[in-house]
Design a protein around this nucleic acid. Structure first.
Length: 226
DNA sequence: GCGACAG
DNA sequence: ATCTTGTCGC
């Protein structure tokens, strides 16, 4: 798939924060999303000793969660890990992988936050803006917001609020596991984002899309060496 | 009194 | 993210 450049890549943390505040105004999480045929999951794996990362994007058919396409790419790390600035570290490689995709998916899911972010501009928002596609963040841990513990059964959820506004949901993705933090990134609202995660639960902690991507990224890392 | 910081 | 052994439960 093809997409136009959204911006130049900042080199400093200050510039990155400024860019987030600027781009956050373009994020749209006001409307639900329609029926989706293809959903892509993406993730990054890191080299054990070198500053290198492995990106993977896997496209699944929403109807039966079968894999229809997969693209992986390895890049050198160009930005440090800073809480709140994760997208500047992982998106460049993800974009390279998406660029090799034959068909554009109807939505994207990834490991990270959407608008449940200090500046309301998490990884899912950033990628959603670049690809101009509905994007959902499904993080494994808390970053911001208040919430209560969701029920014990798979699919149960509680709202995640920030400044009095519901920005996402804490979802029990499988019975007996710690819940995941779901929040919309772009072109999708909280309700649809949560539904999409619910519709792709795989019996494991990660929904099928992000789980498949996680495995693909690790596989590439192994093939590469370590 | 302070207090959760994505991957 | 990543390193790690055994262990518990289906």
């Amino acid at each position: 798939m093809q997409f136009p450049p959204l911006h130049e890549w900042p080199t400093t943390e200050e510039a990155a924060v400024a860019l987030q505040n600027e781009l956050a105004a373009r994020v749209d999480t006001s409307a639900p999303v329609g029926a989706i045929e293809l959903i892509a999951g993406c993730d990054i794996a890191y080299h054990l000793t070198e500053p290198r990362l492995f990106a993977a994007v896997v496209v699944l058919k929403a109807s039966d969660l079968s894999v229809v396409e997969e693209c992986t790419v390895t890049r050198e790390v160009t930005f440090p890990y800073v809480p709140g600035l994760l997208s500047f570290r992982e998106i460049p490689a993800l974009l390279a992988a998406f660029g090799e995709l034959l068909r554009a998916p109807g939505a994207v899911m990834l490991d990270g936050q959407g608008i449940a972010h200090p500046r309301r501009f998490g990884l899912a928002c950033h990628l959603g803006l670049w690809l101009d596609l509905p994007c959902v963040g499904c993080a494994k841990s808390w970053l911001v917001g208040d919430h209560t513990e969701p029920g014990p059964n798979a699919g149960e959820a509680t709202p995640l609020s920030l400044n009095g506004e519901t920005v996402g949901a804490v979802v029990r993705s499988a019975t007996g596991v710690k819940p995941v933090f779901v929040s919309p990134g772009h072109k999708i609202d909280v309700g649809s984002a949560t539904q999409l995660v619910r519709a792709t639960l795989s019996g494991y902690r990660h929904p099928a899309p992000t789980r498949a991507a996680h495995m693909a990224a690790n596989r590439l890392r192994m093939e590469f060496g370590v």
